[in-house]
Amino acid sequence: MDNSQISVRSHELTRRFGKFTAVDSISIEVKHGEIFGFLGANGAGKTTMIRMLCGLLQPTSGEATVAGFDIYKQTEQIKRNIGYMSQKFSLYEDLTISENIEFYGGIYGLKKEQITKQRDKLIGQVGLQTYTNKFTRDLPLGYKQRLALGCAMLHNPPIVFLDEPTSGVDPEARRAFWELIYNTAESGKTVFVTTHFMDEAEYCHRVSIMDQGQLIALDTPSALKKQTGKESMQDVFVSLLKSRRNGNEE
C-alpha cells in the first residue's frame, strides 16, 4: 500500500502490564476513509490498543504511526489530528449541551464563530434543537453518545477512534449512531472503532478480531465469512475462537 494512503499503521505493537500481555505484537494498516473494526470479547486488549494509538498509553515495544506521526515522540501532533471517544461517557453531565460543545470547541482552539457554526451543525445532526439548554445528564444515552462523538470531532480530525461507542444503548440508537459513522467515513475520515457487538462488524469495511491480546483475523467481513464458511459475523467469530482454542490445546 502507498504510504500516503495509510492513516494508522502499527508494527508488532505490544503492551504488557506486569506479566500480563494486553496487546501482543499487533501489526495493522488502516487506509484513509476506511471504517476499521476491532472485534473481541471484553478484556481482549481492544481498549489498550486504542489507548496506545491515541497517545494515552506508552507501548512496551513495537512501533506505530497515526496520521504519519510517531506514537512515542509526537503524541501532541497526533492529538491535533484525531478525535477520541472513550468507553466511559465523556461529556460533563453538569453542563448543558451547548456549554459542552463550547468547552470542547474552545479546547481545540476553534474561533468563536467556528464554534457557533459547529454547534448548530452538530445539534442539527444529532437532532437536539429543542434541548440546547438542557443538562447533558438529562439526555437519553443514545443522544449523549452521538453528542459525544460530535464533540470529539469538532476540530474536524482526519482520524476518529471510537472505543465501544454503542455499549449500553438500544438498537434504534445504535443504528442512528452507525449512520453517523457512515457519514463520517464518507466525508473522508478514517474511523477506527472497537465493539463487541458482532452485528456491528457487518458495517465495517474491514474487521480485525482480537483474542487475548493477539490478532487472530483481519479482512473484510465477506472474506471472513467465505473463509470460515459462515453466514454471519457472530458465527465467524465463534468459529474462529473455537478453532484457535482447539489449536492451542493440541
Binding site: 491535533r80 465523556s90 461529556l91 479546547i107 477512534f161
Partner: peptide
C-alpha cells in the same frame, strides 16, 4: 474518576 479527564488527555490541551 468520572472519565472526562481521559477525553481531555487526547485533546491538544
Amino acid at each position: 474518576e468520572i472519565g472526562t479527564l481521559e477525553q481531555l488527555m487526547v485533546t491538544p490541551l
